[in-house]
Design a binder for these strands. Structure first.
Lengths: 144, 144
DNA sequence: CCTAGTATGTTATTACATAACACTCTATAA
DNA sequence: TTATAGAGTGTTATGTAATAACATACTAGG
């Protein structure tokens, strides 16, 4: 997790972007969380201790972090999760466990090629792809 | 489009579910729309002419129609679109054009198998899958 | 030093979705 | 016939997600 922060710093430096306090704070909170978080939980968490934090501050940080690929937004339920593969922004699928709510990240290449072809067959040129799943993770399967 | 309504009626009859007025109304509006619609546009559209329609009425109808596979929810932007392949609820990917906003539906099988395997490799058992894309459709590519 | 660009702080509002409860309708079994 | 269970709708209110708009601060280049 400290790792992730360092990666973020390095990434920002390379691309000439500022890794400012609110951005760091949001990433730290997400990195420390076991499960994806809702924006408003992030907002209240970010406000603990220090000064109150308002929605736009957090949403702006999230936009920034998502663009860098350091954070992913899970569209299904509007939650946010820190990314493992910081930096190399290959497409990833996010699988969320219905029981423990943890997210598993899976890189795919094959899939995106197939989908691009399938889209192309209908004349559609794909720019962005969202692949998400729900189900049961290994730990919860064992526990059950 | 009349077709879709008839399919819906048949589908409901077979499964012993009621194809009630609000459900029909919501499906009609969606089927008549060129592009996916936001819930609140649906709500105000549904309220035109007849009596005012409130959010829960429409959301309930949408839940119902989504469960039957007659309507899809596009998670990226929280819109809803009527489905072509009523009845046989195979997994579909939805590709939305950034220009004209129309949605293209593409069935996939291959992809879901690959993703299931990829998930299984991490011990994850997949139950539901969301595949969505953004890009440019054929018509808009030609126009540009 | 000033000014353009980038980022944050703050207020207010818009958009998306559901909880909770009362009511209606219909089928079925006493 | 009437009771009652189930499914569905109507309505009020509220909860939750996200952004518009504008003021302010920081920093680097002319």
């Amino acid at each position: 997790m400290q790792d992730l922060i360092r990666q973020a710093e390095a990434l920002c430096q390379r691309s000439g972007m500022a890794f400012t306090a609110p951005r760091r704070r949001v990433l730290e909170i997400l990195a420390a969380s076991e499960t994806p978080m809702k924006a408003y939980d992030l907002i209240s968490k970010a406000g603990e201790g220090g000064q109150a934090t308002k929605p736009p501050t957090v949403y702006r940080a999230l936009d920034f972090l998502c663009q860098l690929g350091l954070v992913h937004r899970i569209e299904q339920d509007a939650t946010f999760v820190a990314c493992n593969h910081a930096g190399h922004s290959q497409p990833v699928a996010l699988f969320v466990c219905n029981t423990c709510l943890k997210a598993t990240e899976v890189a795919y290449d094959e899939v995106s090629q197939i989908l691009e072809k399938a889209a192309a067959a209908k004349g559609f040129h794909l720019k962005r792809l969202v692949v998400e799943g729900r189900g049961q993770c290994q730990d919860c399967a064992i526990a059950a």
